[in-house]
Computed example of a mutant assay.
Amino acid sequence: MEAALFYAASVVDRVIADLPIWIASVAAVVTSVIAAYQLSRISEANVNATKVARASLILEIDAMFEGGDVLESRKVIRTLRNKCVFVARAQIDEEVNQGRVYDSQGRKSAEYALSCEIFSQQLDYLLGRYVSVNKRIDPASSRMANDDKSVEADIYSRYMRLPYWLETVAMLTSQGLLPQNEVFELYDELYAGIMPYFLKHIENRRVEGARQNPNFLIFATNMIEPAKQWRQQKRESRLAVKGAR
């Protein structure tokens, strides 16, 4: 079909010069229609190819999310977060017992902020242990000392694999390779609910120590507020639909 259209267009171009003006005008319109059709087919093919590539990328990213390293990271993060929430609640209970007054929302916010702070403190501690072991190791030291370094690094990296993965997804989103709405449909809880627990530790790494990096996990942290807003809008939409029934 496309070959025939190309041929027709070329024939029209050859005969236009020999035709009366009104016929030439009609022929020019026909040529434009044929060209527009060809461009629409090309655009449609490009759109379809983009959709396929994007779907493949999402499937690959989701496979990484469900894979060994990131899955293990999610497990240890969940365990540590639950412990931090428990400790935070106990500390707030102690404050209440000593006479501090919270309303319901105020207490919830205080527990959340404190649990995030404790979580980041634990990561600071784990990174500090790794750095400390690394400084103590002499290049000529025993294999056992190097094993200690490897163990400390692995403990810390287990917690950081999920944020590193989120950084990759956020970077792809910022470059337009992944639609933000689709990313939030799949992973809004990670950006809005999990990344805030890492935020203080990330800020510390940006400005402190030998490993300071002002752009450390910058794409992932930039997704926190948009993810929260997206969740809020989705929640409001559900409530509006529910109220209309």
Rank of each mutant, 00 (worst) to 15 (best):
M1F: 11
E2H: 09
E2L: 10
A3Y: 10
S10C: 08
V15E: 08
D18R: 12
I21N: 11
V30H: 07
I34R: 03
A35Y: 05
R41C: 10
E44Y: 11
N46A: 11
N46Y: 09
V47L: 12
T50Q: 13
V52W: 00
I58R: 11
E60H: 09
E66A: 07
G67R: 13
E72H: 10
K75C: 08
I77N: 14
T79P: 01
T79Q: 13
L80G: 04
K83V: 02
K83G: 10
Q91S: 06
Q91P: 04
D93G: 03
V96C: 10
N97F: 07
N97K: 15
R100G: 00
S104E: 14
G106T: 00
R107L: 06
S115C: 07
I118T: 04
S120Y: 02
Q122S: 14
D124Y: 06
Y125W: 08
L127Q: 14
L127R: 14
G128C: 06
S132K: 12
S132V: 01
K135Q: 14
A145S: 07
D147S: 13
I155M: 07
I155D: 06
S157R: 13
R161M: 11
P163S: 00
P163W: 06
M171W: 12
L172F: 11
G176T: 04
L186G: 01
D188S: 13
G193P: 03
G193E: 05
G193D: 00
G193H: 02
F198P: 01
H201E: 10
H201R: 01
N204A: 08
R205N: 14
R206F: 04
R206S: 03
G209D: 06
Q212I: 05
N213I: 03
L217C: 04
I218W: 02
T221D: 04
I224D: 02
E225D: 10
P226C: 00
A227G: 05
K228C: 05
R235N: 09
L239F: 07
K242D: 09
